[in-house]
Design a protein around this nucleic acid. Structure first.
Lengths: 340, 340
DNA sequence: CATTAGCACTCTACACCGACGAGTGCTAAC
DNA sequence: GTTAGCACTCGTCGGTGTAGAGTGCTAATG
């Protein structure tokens, strides 16, 4: 445990470093109004804090910078969990009283990244246990068809195909009927299986070109990614001094290009708010960045994730308050429906 | 016009500079097998080429680098328009004989960026003159609805809403029927107008909460962006030496974050292949990069754009061949439908 | 007359040096 | 316990010198 004085100094050092990105020295601290100690005393305290691994030096005679452990301490002890000012960030922006869910999420990412100057990532809910609500095959021209697949959660997937002449319109219609009869209500992930056990035989009886048709249907019903990823403010991080060398930028951008990696990073964010500082992240490309993540609730059983990525030197207090507020706001927004 | 010798030297200089990114000097050129001249002679030729503004120096005693005009000359004179090797880049990759259009386009962008190490941008076709094919409102739970809108071109748009209790399921059904009766076949851009002239009165007669409902419908039918943008290989450019300073990276990435800007950049790419070198681009953020763009045809009247962005020091020959080949390939792919 | 060898010149990249300043740790005095 | 003072460390910045790559010009050459 830290003494009162140590706490104060650690806090001021972090606040200062977050602002300036320069190591902070004892003289500078001594000038701070909140401290009435000489530089020498402060040096002693700083030495103690360094011994406790909360501070680091960049070289033997430099000022101190917070270590990751230092940030961790800051987050755990200096940020009151009670900050619950509802900032109404979103509600302020939505003038329209009609809420289009996807748009709201996208907007949230935008706002978040603009307000913080970090990179915002929002995941839609995991749709893996949704069930099939409806299948539709709509012919567009003589040889193209658009297939539309709706899940119980309102997720819509569509694919356009060019189809061979062997397949007739009436066969398409018949097939859709069969699918809707047999497959509605089945979990998305089990569709391909159900297709083979439930549908194949029926198709064989009623459809002329059933083999070819079956291949198409299988393709339509093959579910791909289950989570939607929204990113905003990618370029923001480039302005941070920790990104001055292109190497780091490259690693990070490669990471952002892979949706799976992003999902991987955020997969174990459960209820509540999490802060992961530097090495605490398991994903290599984020190991010298910090992640603040929280969940929001689209409906009782559909959880989305909302996150910010920035340098470890990050304004945790502000970001945490913001994210907390936003995730709460999103949840109530989706729960209540529109606010007339 | 250039002499034989000048042509050769210009060509070799550009080829070399494209490979190494270092200014090329006379001694280095003299060693090239394709040239049997002394360094001094070459220097004279280079001076001539510089006078014609095809070459530049980075400082008084440096080797030469191509100017933008030099690249332009290279592209116009040294790249035979006849390169028509069908590389079958796409067809090689699609093992599956079922073609999902959107996936193909996405895949193309991926392949293109991987093969070239530049950034690939593909635009879907302009959908502004498509007409409405179908509207659907599917209730998901007591207070959520998903609206699905299909155009004649197979474009599917969907929006999820939370709706107030005042609106009943039967009213929803009635509304959808009215919409499909009255609006199918109308161009997307004119939907909001048609809604007010054609539908409002009918709704008033048949729907209980017609005013509120109308607001929702209006929202559903409001068309947003008309062109889809696929980007791949954003990070690629970071490896190019011309991106070593973060400033440039920042500008470029800000550009990529704005879809409108991208569409703006590519809007006047018409039939055929275009090469825009550096300043030839009108968009500020791309003024020191080069753009190679071509069109592909999804169906008779639906044109998409496929483009590569890289440094002006670019392997034009390779890129042009590749893009030509790919755009042709896409066009035939979509025209023929699947190749069984 | 085109080509080439030679030479003086220019400019960059790089390493090195020294001064300066910010900061530390330690010790002795308050 | 706190502070002033001092020696010491290290990074930054400007200047300086050298090596190397490259040029332009001129005079010699075939």
């Amino acid at each position: 445990m830290l003494t009162e004085r140590e706490s104060l100094i650690l806090q001021i050092i972090i606040d200062d470093f977050v602002k300036t990105a320069h190591p902070v020295g004892s003289r500078k601290l001594a000038k701070n109004e909140r401290i009435n100690l000489s530089a020498a005393t402060i040096r002693n305290v700083m030495a103690d804090l360094e011994e406790k691994e909360l501070l680091e030096k960049t070289h033997t005679s430099s000022g101190r910078i917070p270590s990751e452990k230092g940030y961790r301490y800051y987050v755990d002890h200096f940020i009151s969990p009670a900050i619950n000012d509802n900032l109404n960030v979103i509600t302020h922006v939505i003038q329209d009283n009609i809420i289009e869910l996807e748009r709201v999420v996208q907007l949230s990412a935008e706002i978040l990244s603009q307000l913080t100057n970090y990179t915002a990532i929002i995941l839609g809910p995991d749709e893996t246990d949704a069930t099939l609500k409806q299948v539709q095959l709509l012919p567009l021209s003589s040889n193209t068809v658009v297939a539309i697949l709706v899940t119980s959660t309102g997720h819509v997937e569509h694919k356009s195909f060019t189809i061979p002449h062997e397949i007739s319109v009436s066969d398409l219609e018949k097939t859709v009927n069969i699918l809707n009869e047999r497959l509605v209500g089945i979990p998305i992930v089990k569709l391909t299986h159900a297709l083979e056990t439930e549908v194949y035989d029926i198709m064989r009886k009623h459809i002329k070109n059933y083999k070819l048709m079956f291949e198409y249907i299988k393709n339509v019903l093959t579910y791909e990614e289950s989570v939607k990823v929204y990113i905003d403010g990618q370029a923001n991080l480039l302005m941070q001094p920790e990104f001055k060398d292109v190497e780091k930028v490259y690693d990070f951008y490669c990471f952002l290009e892979q949706e799976e990696a992003i999902i991987d990073l955020l997969k174990d964010i459960q209820d509540g708010l999490q802060v992961r500082i530097g090495q605490e992240n398991e994903v290599e490309a984020v190991k010298d960045l910090s992640l603040i993540a929280s969940t929001y609730r689209l409906s009782t059983d559909r959880l989305g994730t909302i996150a910010l990525i920035g340098p470890t030197r990050m304004d945790y207090r502000k970001v945490i308050a913001l994210l907390k507020s936003l995730s709460r706001e999103l949840t109530t927004l989706f729960a209540e429906g529109q606010t007339t």
